[in-house]
């Protein structure tokens, strides 16, 4: 596996055990060594980050760079932000981060936001079967009705994912933080780079591991089973936003 040493950023939501949103920028300079042992089957205790200092009386929200945070006046730790408040806090944190980070990294972030894809989940339609196919083509079983059903069903899944992605309550967030606040249009979720060694997790992560990470940490919800309908829908929505992007597992 060739790894370009060019600096790349991965913006990852990271755990914070308190009432904090945490966003952290990681610069990967070297290809991490893939573990030579089989993936552990037992559940691993994941690393935590120390909470940002606060006065203990106000709600502190922290970006995943582990450095940027802000105190929300008039709200106590454990208070739930409304969607609009959470969005505002999120915007404010990102603005602070963009202002102080190096121009190249900031530009990369903005670029990725801009290229976020719109949902385009229609399955590629194979050559339609013609009624009474002649001997000149091999008959297959699929009709226009099938294509429309497939499209309808896959869009249903993506739409449900879209809804969860944008709705903190459906997600099970306890602090009002939804996925879309940091990832509008699922920007910077880069599902095409999984599986990859996730430095913050110290192990190989799948997209669903990162979804759960975000649910447990910035959103302070309960993580979802791999086959939970909500997990399936979230994966569907995120992947749908990246239609046409080349698969690049292991990329940092």
């Amino acid at each position: 596996m060739n790894h370009r040493t060019k600096r790349k950023i991965g913006v990852c939501a990271i755990l914070l055990a308190g009432a904090f949103v945490l966003l952290q920028t990681v610069r990967a300079q070297q290809q991490p060594q893939a573990p030579v042992v089989a993936a552990p089957t037992a559940k691993v205790q994941l690393p935590t980050h120390p909470p940002a200092p606060g006065d203990g009386k106000s709600l502190v929200v922290q970006l995943c760079d582990g450095e940027t945070s802000l105190t929300v006046a008039g709200m106590k730790p454990g208070d739930r932000l409304s969607p609009a408040q959470a969005q505002q806090v999120s915007d404010e944190l990102m603005a602070q981060w963009l202002a102080k980070t190096d121009p190249e990294t900031a530009a990369a972030w903005v670029r990725e936001e801009k290229t976020a894809r719109k949902a385009a989940a229609a399955p590629q339609k194979p050559a339609a079967a013609k009624a009474g196919a002649t001997q000149t083509e091999q008959p297959n079983d699929f009709s226009d009705r099938d294509f429309s059903t497939w499209k309808r069903e896959v869009e249903r899944e993506v739409t449900y994912g879209n809804q969860i992605f944008h709705d903190d309550k459906l997600l099970g967030s306890t602090n009002g933080v939804s996925c879309a606040m940091c990832h509008p249009n699922a920007a910077n979720t880069h599902p095409e780079t999984y599986p990859k060694f996730q430095i913050q997790l110290r192990r190989v992560a799948l997209l669903r591991d990162m979804i759960n990470w975000c649910i447990e940490n910035p959103s302070r919800g309960k993580k979802l089973d791999a086959d939970d309908p909500k997990m399936r829908a979230l994966e569907a929505y995120i992947m749908a936003q990246r239609k046409g992007v080349a698969m690049e597992y292991g990329k940092h």
Binding site: P53, S58, L70, V72
Partner: peptide
């Protein structure tokens, strides 16, 4: 970890 914190009022 070094923290810098700003206070905002909603």
């Amino acid at each position: 970890m070094k923290h810098s914190s700003v206070k905002i009022t909603l």
